[in-house]
């Protein structure tokens, strides 16, 4: 049992082969095998969101997924959004608006926010969307509900919403 299993993934644009113990989570594959430690382990049980990455553009908890399940998938981690020397707009907004303190939940928050903006653009509803048939209005409550899968013990939530809001406003057509 636990014989080596294989999968080929694309991580931040590079092909990566997984060959190993099927118990290895996508999170541990990224952190331990690929040394992409930007994705954080906060609970290992899908209860905090620190391990959020994008799989084929959608945000998921990488702790509750096996690496071997992702054959053929495209994974984007915080390292794929931008290095410190060339931050993406969202990453810069988190710095400007102090959308973090200790920084441990931050890569997960940012990956989550990126996908969240795409979900909003696609018109996906949330638990606070008043009218399910028309598109959501991006109120503060909408944004905070949609970001509630990412815990932040430092309590940077209001600043996280400010950072996301700033990016949304910058992207609005003039």
């Amino acid at each position: 049992m636990s014989e080596n299993c294989a999968a080929r993934l694309t991580v931040n644009g590079s092909p990566e082969d997984f060959l190993g113990d099927p118990r290895r989570s996508l999170l541990d594959f990224l952190r331990l095998d690929l040394k992409l430690t930007g994705t954080k382990k906060g609970c290992d049980h899908g209860q905090c969101g620190a391990c959020t990455v994008l799989v084929n553009g959608q945000r998921i908890n990488s702790c509750l997924s096996l690496a071997v399940m992702h054959d053929g998938d495209e994974i984007t981690t915080i390292e794929g959004l931008g290095p410190a020397s060339a931050l993406s707009e969202l990453q810069r907004a988190f710095v400007t608006h102090d959308g973090f303190q200790c920084g441990y939940c931050t890569p997960g928050q940012i990956c989550s926010a990126k996908a969240m903006l795409d979900e909003l653009a696609a018109g996906w509803p949330s638990a606070v969307t008043k009218d399910l048939t028309s598109g959501p209005i991006p109120s503060d409550e909408e944004l905070s509900e949609r970001m509630s899968g990412n815990l932040c013990r430092c309590g940077a939530y209001p600043n996280i919403i400010d950072a996301i809001r700033a990016v949304m406003q910058a992207e609005e057509p003039a």
């Binding site: 959020t52 945000r59 509750l64 509803p125 899968g149």
Partner: peptide, 19 residues
């Protein structure tokens, strides 16, 4: 069937619901 959408959206988190 908006009841179904409401109930799903009341559960878990967006990341978990995606999976």
């Amino acid at each position: 069937w908006p009841l179904l959408a409401q109930a799903i959206l009341a559960g878990a988190s967006p990341q978990l619901r995606n999976k």
